[in-house]
Design a protein around this nucleic acid. Sequence first.
DNA 1: CTGAAACCGGACCAGATTTGTCCTGTTGCT
DNA 2: AGCAACAGGACAAATCTGGTCCGGTTTCAG
Lengths: 157, 157
Amino acid sequence: MFKLSKLTDYAVVVLVRLAREDAVQTSPCIAAATGIPEPTVAKVLKTLASGGLVLSQRGARGGYRLTRPLAAIPVSDVIAAIDGPIALTACVDHGACETHTLCPMHGRWDPVNEAIEAALSAITLADMDRAIPRVFRAPADAARTDAAKTDAAKITA
Amino acid sequence: MFKLSKLTDYAVVVLVRLAREDAVQTSPCIAAATGIPEPTVAKVLKTLASGGLVLSQRGARGGYRLTRPLAAIPVSDVIAAIDGPIALTACVDHGACETHTLCPMHGRWDPVNEAIEAALSAITLADMDRAIPRVFRAPADAARTDAAKTDAAKITA
DNA sequence: CTGAAACCGGACCAGATTTGTCCTGTTGCT
DNA sequence: AGCAACAGGACAAATCTGGTCCGGTTTCAG
């Protein structure tokens, strides 16, 4: 029904959260800060890493960090990383449906697909970050402060 | 994964087919012409009828016909009729997620949603009809022999 | 050198959603 | 009347997603 997966939603939250710190952040830490279950955060981060949106640092004291600023990440990249390439229907980019001869719609969705991709490429995560009503910014910031303290404690410990 | 349902795909095929005749057409007839199973065609048409995109004529000699020309039907209308209103995430148009205070992304997807809706409203079924490679234009009625050279028909957009 | 912390990558199950079909009215032409 | 065709919902099967868990590997700290 033309919705995107919840994982993509999470990915945006995680990425924005990741942008608030310079240091690498662990998935448990991000999970605590965002309220998303830890295994899910880990899964999202792994996917984002293989998509090249975040860098991973292995070993103790490891974690993740962004590869580019939020303003350089269009929404289309996040969706592509999580959900795979944007393709509204099976006909769009695979050469064709199995039966060329009977598929009366081959290539039909191409212009639609391109229009959507263009729209999605024009919006960056920085835009989405700005779009949050201020009512929700403050609490998020508060949560961040707390979490940051926790992080600091852990790091200095 | 950011795909639309197959039903929507069918709906476009059915609507385009419907536009080729002035007279009302029955669902069995359309099913035969498009190769889509008859019960499914009937389901799609019923949905489209309740969405106001086609008019139904009951009784013997009944059938369906378009309420407006293809050029006056944006893709967004078809999607809205089949899949419901366009809403990328649950947060988009419902007031909010259950827990306002903890949802750090309330309202975040709004600009994205609007961009997509705009892109979808700008493309009509007539545009999609034109987008079909010529190999597939005439032959919706009769399976053609030249299906092999579809590659040559790669869109010249 | 040893241990712990953290990522890697895949398998896995439960649940929701979608697909496609059918059945029983109701309407309206002939 | 009789028949053709739509109306509307119920339904089972299949697919997909969401979310979790596991063993393995890498790296840092003591």
